[in-house]
């Protein structure tokens, strides 16, 4: 475990070097929240609730969603793809480390930095500038667990896409298809409540909504009660385990085709 903690510390420290990057990431996120604030205000047009969500709740969902998006977007699909293409992966394979765990801890390190650098300014901005009020309830206690599930699921999807680098040149195409499908079906663009009932019932069982919708609902409507949250967490837990197994199998298969020339 200690060796993985070293990887974690490493990427966290790399994150600290790019302060200029954080400044723009925070600015970009606040600007984005400002824009969607106007967009949703004009969608609500003074209506009290839409699809069971008040304007205040929708704003929590969307604004926090874009922040969670920053935390989960670690570009590990691009990095892994690059490491495979350039043969850098060889230097990990000769180390006494599990490549998937190594990649996971690298992600956790940069996410930990992002939590401090991006979430805190965003939440302050939401409370003091946009005057959004947060409700309290059992959901808030479940949020950390749900967020960890979301992080692992998102990582596994990225890892899976990254591994396709063993077979395909086109990371741009695969990654952008993945990204856009994940964004849309997870509720990151429009809260899932706005989707037609039939679509929503299907989406509930897919891994996408487990990445955004589930953790976001725990903050948006934290007082929904355990009867709502337990099934959502169960779906998350299922996908976490299923995707870990799936990516492991794929990794063991993919590593066999690896050929690195030169050095």
């Amino acid at each position: 475990m200690r060796k993985y903690m070293a990887v974690f510390r490493g990427t966290a420290m790399v994150g600290m070097i790019y302060r200029f990057g954080y400044f723009f990431a925070i600015l970009g996120n606040l600007l984005y929240i400002g824009i969607v604030y106007y967009l949703w205000k004009s969608i609500y047009q003074g209506r009290e609730t839409l699809r069971g969500l008040t304007f205040n709740e929708t704003m929590i969902y969307i604004a926090l969603g874009s922040t969670v998006f920053f935390l989960l977007k670690t570009y590990s699909d691009w990095i892994i793809h690059y490491e495979i293409r350039e043969g850098i992966i060889a230097s990990y394979l000769i180390k006494p480390m599990d490549f998937q765990l190594y990649a996971l801890f690298a992600v956790l390190g940069s996410t930990a930095m992002n939590i401090f650098a991006i979430s805190i300014p965003t939440i302050l901005f939401m409370i003091f500038v946009l005057k959004i009020s947060f409700a309290t309830g059992i959901g808030l206690l479940l949020f950390p667990l749900s967020f960890i599930f979301a992080l692992v699921i998102s990582f596994c999807i990225d890892f899976f896409v990254g591994l396709m680098g063993f077979y395909s040149e086109s990371v741009w195409g695969i990654s952008s298809v993945k990204e856009i499908i994940l964004m849309f079906f997870s509720g990151a663009l429009v809260p899932l409540q706005f989707f037609p009932e039939a679509v929503r019932n299907v989406l509930f069982w897919l891994p996408f909504q487990a990445v955004f919708h589930t953790p976001l609902m725990m903050v948006t409507k934290p007082d929904s009660g355990l009867a709502t949250f337990i099934p959502m967490l169960a779906v998350q837990a299922f996908w976490t385990i299923a995707l870990i197994v799936l990516t492991r199998l794929f990794y063991n298969q993919a590593i066999k085709v690896l050929r690195i020339s030169g050095g």
């Binding site: 395909s168 040149e169 086109s170 741009w172 195409g173 695969i174 990654s175 952008s176 298809v177 856009i180």
Partner: peptide, 10 residues
């Protein structure tokens, strides 16, 4: 294949 996949992405 790259062209087809990227077009799909677009």
């Amino acid at each position: 294949a790259d062209f087809i996949i990227s077009s799909l992405g677009m």
